[in-house]
Structure formats: structure tokens, C-alpha cells
Design a protein around this nucleic acid. Sequence first.
RNA 1: GCCCGAGUGGCGGAAUUGGUAUACGCGUUCGACUUAAAAUCGAAUGGGAAACCAUAUGGGUUCAAGUCCCAUCUCGGGCACCA
Length: 768
Amino acid sequence: MERYDPIRIEEKWQQKWETEKPYQVEDVPTGTKAKLPKKMIAEMFPYPSGAGLHVGHVRNFTIVDVLTRFYVQQGMNVMRPFGYDTFGLPAENYAIKTGTSPKEATAINIANFRKQAKRLGYAIDWDREINTSSPEYYKWTQWCFLQLYKKGLAYRKESYQWWCPVDQTVLANEQVEDGKCWRCGHEVEKKKMKQWFFKITEYADELLDEIDALDWPEKIKTMQKNWIGKSVGAEIEFDIVNGTKLTVFTTRPDTIKGATFLVVAPEYTGLKYIVTDDTREEVEKYCAEALKKSEVERQENKEKTGVFTGSYAVNPATKEKIPIWVADYVLAGYGTGAIMGVPAMDERDREFAEKMNLPVVEVELVDFGQYGTPKTTYKMRDWLISRQRYWGCPIPIVYDAEGNPHPIPEEQLPVIIPEVEDYQPDSSGRSALAKAKDWLKVEIPVKDAKTGETHMETMTRETDTLDGYACSSWYLWRYASPHDTEAAWDAEAIKYWEPVDIYVGADHAVAHLLYVRFWCKFFADMGFLPFREPIKKLIYHGYINAPDGKKMSKSKGNVIDPLDVINDGYGADTLRTYEMFIGPVELDAAWNPRSVGGVYRFLNRCFNLCFQNEKTAKADDNATVRNKTIKKVTEDIYKCNFNTAVAALMEYVNELYKVVVSREDLVVLAKLLKPFAPHLASEMLEKLEATDEWPEWDEKYLVEDTVELVVQVNGKLRANIAIEASELDDEKSLLEKVLKDEKIQKYVKDGYKKTIFVKKAKLVNIVV
RNA sequence: GCCCGAGUGGCGGAAUUGGUAUACGCGUUCGACUUAAAAUCGAAUGGGAAACCAUAUGGGUUCAAGUCCCAUCUCGGGCACCA
């Protein structure tokens, strides 16, 4: 037997697919295509790094590809697009280091990614490629921003923000992990800055309410629910003895009688009206220190600290005078930034009270209606989108001489990223865009409020760029009409193709997957989208680790390069099939080079069955195993059990090796194999002169004439008896037969208590 | 600390949802082909001489438990002063 040569076969088919474009679809399908059921299947588009594809990408893309080919073979109209998420820090940091412009570096990386993806034989519609850093694309990202701006959902606010001193940019909450920057790992700081936000909180309730209905992994749904963090409670207004007022939020307003003190956060805006002259110095010192503390320090040391403000408030329920404190265990960004301390009820308040010697009184629950108003709050904050970086989508805003923001008129879009010499952000906290002096000034038409006449005014551009997540919040809709010059997406194309049927990824549980839902709801409200949830089904797959089980990383030198696997002679089909066989799709898996060889042997056996086999049988001879395999593989792919689908194919091939195969046996093998190993399967189908139409199983072949009856005594297996399938219908005579069986006789010679017959399991259990 | 998820051969993992535990693959051993090796093909492979014993540990429910219930241990993930 020969070894098959995947490299030759794969080259042949990849060339064919390149010229014939069998996976190309129309924006708005016409003719018979328009009547077909559709599937839109996509992966979370990759950031094309200089290192090229890694095995994780291959797992990600291959899952999408298996599903795409599966549905195509079933005769559906399937869109499987591809794109590149190209804005971001790595390209910019590379530019700072080498002077190569991010634009150039990105172009090189995309070309490499595309070449590698083509080498894996994916059923991509290559005319549907998008790139978030191309002006044709980001023009519409800016348009999206303007829509949000018009509705007041993009706004500017001065507040304390996470600041990474290394990357010199602010970060969203989602981009701070364990108090550290998600990109460089440096500890983040708090910095007071005027920044742009998207008002995602406007949709908090809907984002929460509609999540349960989604066909997404429970894990991701729970993470999003926790992130949104809805709390139902009340706001209660306390009179301060000096005549002002202070409002707290609580989920337990009924415990108000137990409130023996109030606490405000160090960043609390009304603090200056509360502090008395004799405590001012001490309070200011405390607040300054609290702000300086990094998030890591705050997390590591949860010891309660705080100082008395000198002021008192009146508990409206007890009329007691209670002290107002400032402490950093109260968070400024949540609720009102102020709480009532109920030490008898709340563990944190008790800890604080004990430390500060504040009174603890028994709580007597009351109806709070007369003291407060019902209020719901969320842990989720508005989405901070300003980035002080060069390589991002410019925010389409200009400022007049007074510093007031104005939107760029839509006809002036896109705001093109200017070329600069030096990509280093400046120390003032502004991106390198600020260095493009000519670009900064722009003539903007302004309508005079009194005369109604329009005149041109010179304004200054915003130098912040958008968080990359903004670019990926709408790309799934761009796929439907990627070359549209008139709109971000075409309404007709969207109506046919979207929402996305299956979305495949391994990251971004709360960030991207929440943002894309938020934008969907917003654009649905604007009348631009005919649905409110962008993704019907989400497949969240595991990572592939190094053979030792550790994360692959360059520094550890344990990275497996998928292109090496291909070029070692295994080929793309082996790589793809191996990664589907590696384990359950949702679990992490460790790379096993030997197992790759096992999958190669399997494909080699498929090849030999088809090309080295002279003898053929009648199509009916192996009908049972053939139909069983069709059923198993079909159902497994529906359930995304790719590992057991491949195992079923292996079993089928093992069976076929034992018998004389028919042409039909081979056709079915090739058809079922095609989603996993499309090149080899295509080669087989060509020789067999068959189409790739997905086969159906016939139930009549699944019923076997003779079956094995399982006989247990007290639940323990004691015998397997071959019987006619029809014997299962007559329990009485079957039992007689079983009791006469010589293996069973010795167990029942002293009689038995009862028997249990389970027809479905072909099982008899005798209780003695 | 709180909330999920998972513990099955030497290894990755199967198991129709309560019904023959260990499918499939790797590894290992033996055999065939070969001057030889590789490749390929075939056979065996949880432990034990056997009765039996094995799905993290200990109990329970059931004719029957990897699967259900209770407790414990270990690992992974998420959240973490959100009032």
C-alpha cells in the first residue's frame, strides 16, 4: 500500500477553488438561490499578527468550515465570510520600534494570513474580505459613531479612568484584568480625564432580559449577567445637619432603622459640601492616598480604612443623628457613590463599624416606602471608547474655538488617518495624531442660529481614536454587503443573510459579545436592522495547548506552527481533521504530535480504500454499517460533536477494511469526510464520479435481524445471547429461553425472585 | 469568600441521558511482508492465576449508578468590598 500525497492533491483542489469560486454568494441572492434556506456562519475575525496563523486559529476556522461545508452539501445557501481586525496596539508598538508604518505592516500581515488560510482549504467567499483599518471600512465605523452621537449615546465626560502608563492610553473596565493592562500587563492607574463614552447602560435591562433566549453556552450567558449586575433596591435621601442632602443607594431599604452611619467614596463629588473645616485636611489627605492606591493594592488589602468628615445626617426612620464617613470600600462608580451603614446586617459595614467604634443596633425591618424611592442599578458602566493611540479609527469629532465638540458632517467621512513620522504618543496624553499639524485643522460648515446661513469655520480635530471593539461591533453586518459605498450595510442583504446563524470564537465573553448586542439593539431602534439580537447560536471553543498542557508561547518555545505540520507532509486535511478529533469542542486540549500521525493514517486508509481497491461488492452488502455511519456523523455535526463524528468515520473505515466494499460505501465515505478533509474527499468524489450532496440514512437498514440480548443476574452481566430481533416482541418465550441458557442455569438453579425486561436496551435482568 | 463546570485505562477521550463501562485515536507487545529499516496489514492490550475488583473518596436510592441524591477531597473557569 502506498502513502497518499496530500500536498499534490491539496494544491490541485485549492487552485480549482481559487478559479471557480464555488463558495461565492451574492449580497442579495437572485433566482433559485433566493428561495434556498440560508446560513450565515462566521468566526470571530482574527487580528492578523506578524506570526501568522497558529493552531488556535486553525481550530476556530475549521469549526466554521466544517459547518459551512456541511450545510452547503445539504443544499443550503451558506455565507462564510472572512475579515481582519487590524487596528490595535501590536501594529503601533511595532511601528514605534521599527518605523514601519502600521498600515504597511498590516498589509503584509494580511497577505500572509490570507495565503495561510487558503492553504488550509477553507470554503471562504474571498470576495467578502473586510479589513477594519481600510478607509472604506472605517468610514462606516465613523458613521456608526455619529449615529450614536446624534442620539446622545456617544458623550464626553470627565472622570477617573484606568490609565496604562506603559501604553499611555486609557482602558475600558473590560480591558483591565487583575488591576493590570490586558495588553502589556503593567499595573494600571487612575487618571482624571475627559473621555468619550458609549451609553451601553441605556440598554442594560434589554441586554439582560433577552440573554436567556439565546442559544449560547450557559457559561457565557452567566458571565454577561454578572457583568451587567442588576440590583433592585431604593435610593434614600438623608438630610445633612448643615442643611444639604445626601442620597444613598441600597438593596435593603427595609433595614433603614439599623443605619448608624453613612459612608461616601473618596471620589464622591459632593464631598466638599460635607467636610467640615476642622476635618478638611485629614479628609483630603485620605482621599489623595486612596486615589493613589492601585487597583492591585486595593484588592490585596481589604482592610477597612476611612475618616470621619465631621458632618452628621439624620436617619429619617429613627431621627437619630448619625456620622458621615469617607472610606474607599465604597465605590464611586456604583449607585450614588454613597451608602448607609447597617452594621447589624451587612458584613462589610460591621467590619467597618467595629474598626471605627461605630454603634451597632438591632435591625427591625420596616416598610421603607415613606423614606425612599425604588431604584435599580447596574454594575455595568458606560463603555469608555477614547484611546490615546495613533493606530485606531479616528473619532469623527472637531472642536470649535471654545472647545465645544461638533460632529464631522457625514459627507466629509471618512476622517482619514494621517501619515506621521513618529508614532510615539506625546507625554500630554495625546496620540501621535496630534503631531499631524496640517491634519488637525479642518474647515467645518456651521449654520448660524440667527440668520440660518452656513459659513465655514476652522476647527480642531479630536486626536483620540476609537477602542478597537467599536470596529468589531458592526462587522458582522458589513459582511452582507462588504463593498457597499452608499451605506454601512445594505438593507436587503441584511434582511436575507442576518442575523448570524452560528458564530464561533474562544474569547471576548463580556466585551465584544456584549458590545455587538448593544449596537444591534441601538441600530434596530434606529430602523437600520430588522432584528434585536445579532447572533443566534454561539460556539465557544477551547484553546489548544502545548503537548505538556501549558499555554503555547514564543518565550517557552513550545509553539506548534500549523504550517509546519502541513509542510512536514501531513497536509491540510490531516491538520484540520486532527483538530476536530482532538477533543470536545468546548474544552481545552493539548497538542499530541503522535495523534496527528494517527489521523494521517486514517486518511491514508480512506485514500487506499478508494484508489487501491479493485474488488467491489453489491451496494446493499454493507448497508447497515453505512447507514449507521451516515446517521451518527450527521447528528454529531448538528450537535458540534466533531470528535465523535471523526471517530465514527474511523470506525466505518475499519469496518470497510474487513469486507468487500461497494462504490456506494466509498461515495458515502467521501461525502461524510468532505467537511473535515475537503481536498481528499473531493479527489475521491471525482474518481467515483459522484456529487458531494449530503447522504441520507434509511431507517430500514438500521434494524438488525439478529441482536445480542444482554442477560444480567442481579445487575451483573452474565451472558450475551444471540437472538432474532423478532424474539424481543415475546417477553414470555424469551424469558424461557434465557432461563434455559447454560451460563444462566447455575445462577437460577435455586429459583429467582423476579425478572426485568428492558426492550429498548435489549436486556434482561434476573433478580435472585 | 461566592457562583458555575469537571474528576473514567499508561495518555487524549467514548458511553443512546439510569441499562453490556473503557468506542475512536495514541502508546505498548506479538505476528506478516522485507536482506534490513520505514511504511503498510493482522492480532492482543483496565487490574487480577482465578473468584472477582475497577469511572476522585465515603455513604445512599434502585432490579440496575460513570450517569440520580448527600458529604468530603482535588483541579479548571468566572466574580470578587457592587451596599
